[in-house]
Design a binder for these strands. Sequence first.
DNA 1: GTCTATACCAAGATAGAC
DNA 2: GTCTATCTTGGTATAGAC
Lengths: 203, 203
Amino acid sequence: MSPRTKDQYSEIRRVSREKILSAALELFAKKGFHATSISQIAKKAKISKGLMYNYFKSKDRLLDEIIQNGFTELAGLSYHSTKSASPEEQLKNYVSAVLDNLYSNYVYWQLYLALLVHPDIQKRYEKKMKAFRDEFIREFSKLFRKLGAKNPKLETFLLGTYFDGLVLNFIAAEADFSVEEIKNALLSKYIENIHPKSKRKSG
Amino acid sequence: MSPRTKDQYSEIRRVSREKILSAALELFAKKGFHATSISQIAKKAKISKGLMYNYFKSKDRLLDEIIQNGFTELAGLSYHSTKSASPEEQLKNYVSAVLDNLYSNYVYWQLYLALLVHPDIQKRYEKKMKAFRDEFIREFSKLFRKLGAKNPKLETFLLGTYFDGLVLNFIAAEADFSVEEIKNALLSKYIENIHPKSKRKSG
DNA sequence: GTCTATACCAAGATAGAC
DNA sequence: GTCTATCTTGGTATAGAC
């Protein structure tokens, strides 16, 4: 029996951490932080309660790390689409990106929502959330300005509100409409309304 | 010392119940159901822990009653505005009503949101929530149809999504815009977009 | 690196005095 | 009708064996 190498141990640790993080993320998002117990996490991750504390100092620290991962993941959105494209195209791309991200990172968005809803928890991550929102506002305001909106910040606010509401609907209701339908409805509304001169080429 | 009459007792009971309900509502909405303890409720209501159980069988039953009250309150919205008015006027009235209600019943909306976010809790009140949403959809679909929308249900979905998002923003962020601004932005977007022929009288 | 056993505490809930 | 004291459970977290 050769003993395990450093790399092997490191890999084992990585996997275990990952199992815990993934189980916790899902439960926190679905049931909420307080409603989720370490036992439930351990069960879902198929490890013992004790092991969790080997990897995370406390339930709170576990949440911290998950949130941190979430922000990293969600920031991956980053609004650096093809800058050369027309504003309309850019808006399209952005909205598409957000909606698609909303699907692929569903669980993180659900968690993000839960944080928003409860002021107490929200306060703990206030700074990061603000940074996240601020970038959103900055980027979309620029865009709406280019599109000739009267009040770009207000438009951005409304769009952001739309997104928030969409997350809620994806989570809460049995989604009566497809992403494509919503995407189109949203875009046509915004683009035509803000920039009525530039009718999209028909055909 | 004359003993208290039946009515006096009944009134005392009413007041105590009310104190508990009000304290619990606020805490459930703000911190979430699971994050709120009976002790905290008792403290806020300025009663003893034990008394709570005199009025409610359990923490769960307490929540049940609060939710019930919430639906009653929110249903007070009811979309029976002046039927004689034009569809545009009606939409205006409805949107106004919802936004105003959103302010006056802030706490209930916050709670409603918290319920939506967590599928587990949501399931417990699924039926009532569905009834509530269904009425919303029915009424606004009618309206959007009158306004000549291509897909009234989709429009209703989008509007509902807006409202959901607005609730979130009122709760989560430090509201960058006034209700009036939002109301107008929303309405102008919807009305002009859906019914482009009928330009509002300028002047 | 992982588990079981256990300490410790706070939560929900009940009993009985006033 | 209200309170204090108490029971019981389940939670977070730690210790120590494997």
